[in-house]
Simulated assay, not measured.
Amino acid sequence: MQTLDLPQTSRAQQFDFNNFSFGETPTDHLFLAEYKGGNWSSLGVQPFQNLTLSPFALCFHYGQTVFEGMKAFRLADGSISIFRPDKHYDRLSKSLDRMSMPVLPRPLFLEGLTDVILQGQAWLPTDRTDIALYIRPFVIATEARLGVKVSSEYLFAVACTPIGEYYDKPLRVKVETQYARAAEGGAGYAKFGGNYGGAFYPTQKAVEAGFDQVIWTDAKTHECLEEAGTMNIMMYVHGTLVTPPVSSSILDGITRNSIIQIAKDLNIPFEERAISCKELQGNFKNGDRVELFGVGTAAIVSPIACVQIDDTDYFPFTETDAVMFTLKNELEAIRRGKKKDKHNWNYLIS
């Protein structure tokens, strides 16, 4: 590992962990690696800094930007772990492959995560069980050349920022039936910039109308739920947890996968199948107790308090005895070392 004039004291000592907005404050360090001549090479941990790129860098023009969202935690015994890095590496590799970008060697990926977090462990205070480090690994095309082509040069970086609760209240969402996030056969399963840029316009229109997020429906018929903005979508009804199956248009969420496994561990009946808008409306009209919630790395488990379908508002169950909170608490207990990690999800680095 290379290091270049790393800060001797951390800005975490002056940081107000009681009053901050997610994503605005980076930790003190950055890990960099570059791809040139067909090979990846580590540039090591460096002070957090701006990147210098040519205006012709292909990442600015043709969409070759891929990233992940992960978390690191201070466990109950004081050690530090990264949550499910192997699963995130697999998804990052699929995204890179879909965008015709070179896959990172697994050891390089883990080196970047581990080195930045160990250098920034002051950002995981031992007395704050509500704080985690959000990790942003990303790869961008850096070849300086205009022209629609696959880049021959890339930069891999890992940056971190502290995170508490991503959403601080239950959400009001709209089922989107006009615009589509992704279609089957496209790149909806890849975590790359274009998927998010294309979603901004309909999401912003929903926000202006008083919603927090949208629930995307399938691009072909707009009849079935797919994702909930920045999260996968789940429903608990009639004693069963239900979520749409992953596909080429749905991101394979790591939190989604973890919640499914926890539900199985707790003997909660589970179904992976399509959820139609008509089915959801029917449940509400029948007076069924319906829990509707999003799951994701940043959001964890976010209850939906109001969902609008075809201009009609419906109100899912969000009281404290909801099953979704049992699932969330179980996940948090595992990630923070308060319960046995029988699936080996926590990757210990200290």
Rank of each mutant, 00 (worst) to 15 (best):
E272P: 05
C306Y: 03
D115Y: 00
P47S: 07
E111D: 13
D265G: 07
K71V: 11
G186I: 00
R74W: 10
Q121E: 13
V246F: 06
K340C: 03
Y35E: 02
N19Q: 14
S258I: 07
V173A: 09
E68A: 05
E272H: 07
V323Q: 15
L155P: 03
D212A: 05
P244T: 04
R172D: 04
L331E: 03
G185L: 08
Q2A: 14
Y167D: 05
E165M: 12
M101R: 06
R336F: 11
L30V: 06
I262L: 12
F56L: 15
G287E: 08
E330S: 13
L30F: 08
T3N: 14
T312V: 15
E24H: 13
V139H: 01
Y35H: 14
N257W: 04
Y236P: 04
N286A: 15
R336L: 08
G185S: 13
Q308M: 12
A228E: 10
G38K: 10
D115N: 13
D77W: 10
S248K: 02
K87H: 15
A183N: 10
A299T: 12
P269A: 10
K94A: 14
Q64N: 09
A144W: 08
T318H: 07
F17Q: 06
G186L: 05
Q13C: 13
L4T: 12
S151V: 00
L327P: 01
I254G: 04
I309E: 10
L110R: 02
I260A: 05
L110G: 01
V139R: 02
F56E: 14
R145G: 09
S81W: 01
L251M: 11
F56V: 12
G239M: 05
G23Q: 09
I304K: 02
G197Q: 08
Q13D: 13
E143A: 09
K71C: 10
L327H: 03
V148G: 08
K278T: 15
D5P: 01
R335W: 01
S41D: 12
T9I: 13
G186F: 08
Y189M: 13
Y201A: 12
V307P: 02
K174V: 06
G112S: 01
N18C: 04
Q204C: 11
F83D: 02
G63E: 01
M99Y: 03
E291S: 07
D5N: 14
G147H: 09
V242M: 10
Y189C: 08
A228K: 00
E291C: 12
S152N: 14
Y236W: 08
D77S: 10
F192K: 03
E24T: 15
C160G: 08
G198E: 08
K174L: 15
Q46F: 07
L30G: 01
G38A: 11
S276Y: 11
S100L: 12
V139N: 03
V139M: 07
L113A: 00
G296S: 09
K205C: 06
I140Q: 00
D341Q: 07
F270Y: 12
F156C: 04
